[in-house]
Design a binder for these strands. Structure first.
Length: 263
DNA sequence: GCCAGAGGCACCCATATTCG
DNA sequence: CGAATATGGGTGCCTCTGGC
């Protein structure tokens, strides 16, 4: 132990002059009577990196005795690198099973290549089909998708948005809960320039992109098509409670039936 | 002087730690 | 207690070196 100011060694005189002065953030604190200053004990063991098992470009660089930036260039097919050096780096990366850290990539690039999706209920076939479509398109574009379920709870929807934004998603696709009537939790992010797209359940209160379908008109055309193709009797199956037909869709069915006088 | 190859530093950002 | 610093991985940009 040595006082950083006096630089005195740990002799008898020194031990008389330095006294323990409590614990500060896990480290022993001392007070030097000679120079009248406080100082902390240096930590002897460096805190291990929790992800130290993961191979990084630094490991590859150290192994080959070159700079990390050279490794980065080699692994990302940049032009200004020697062919043989590049081959050495790529071979070692393969041997060590190197995988890029996506968090660090998003840190430097400012984007995560990830899209957040919030749906009210994953059990509804409609949303399952929408998710399949989103996943397919996003994957082709090189994006990953994080899916959250609000479970028709406004509070859960807010928490989902906070979680997705903390994960630095590049954009958000959302279908609101039935409880949602205020949109401040979305406007904050929209004003910061985060792309937000509403689908299925939309609101005109918020100035975002919207994708919806016309239930009433679509249902009307569906029934009309059946009637014009010879159907005389039409049964409407409501299904289980969670799959009940929406009112506007039912209005469409009934309007078409009334038009053709079919009970 | 020009060019290719390589090195090194700042930056991104949140969090933990250190220090006065 | 607040300010300063370190940490993590990867990239962009600038600088340096050596060969021609």
């Amino acid at each position: 132990m040595e006082c950083p100011n006096c630089k005195l060694n740990e002799d008898l005189e020194f031990t008389r002059k330095v006294v323990k002065a409590g614990i500060l953030r896990g480290a022993q604190r001392y007070y030097c009577n000679h120079c009248k200053t406080h100082f902390s004990e240096k930590r002897k063991v460096k805190i291990e990196n929790k992800n130290s098992h993961q191979i990084t470009i630094l490991d590859i660089a150290k192994h080959l005795g070159i700079a990390p930036s050279t490794v980065s260039k080699a692994l990302n097919n940049k032009s200004d690198i020697n062919f043989e050096t590049k081959n050495l780096i790529v071979k070692l990366a393969n041997d060590l099973n190197y995988k890029p850290n996506h968090f660090a990539k998003s840190l430097s690039r400012g984007n995560s290549n990830t899209i957040g999706v919030i749906i009210p209920n994953i059990e509804r076939p409609f949303f399952a089909a929408v998710l399949a479509g989103i996943q397919s398109v996003a994957s082709k574009a090189g994006y990953s998708v994080i899916i959250c379920q609000s479970d028709e709870s406004h509070q859960t929807e807010i928490l989902n948005i906070q979680t997705l934004m903390a994960s630095r998603v590049d954009g958000l696709l959302i279908s609101h809960t039935k409880e949602t009537s205020t949109f401040e939790h979305l406007k904050i992010h929209l004003n910061k320039g985060v792309p937000i797209v509403h689908f299925d359940r939309i609101s005109n209160e918020i100035n975002s992109s919207k994708i919806t379908h016309q239930n009433k008109e679509g249902s009307f055309q569906l029934v009309e098509h059946l009637i014009e193709n010879g159907c005389k009797r039409i049964a409407i199956l409501a299904g289980p409670k969670e799959l009940l037909i929406s009112n506007d869709r039912l209005d469409g069915y009934l309007a078409a039936l009334n038009k053709y006088g079919i009970p």
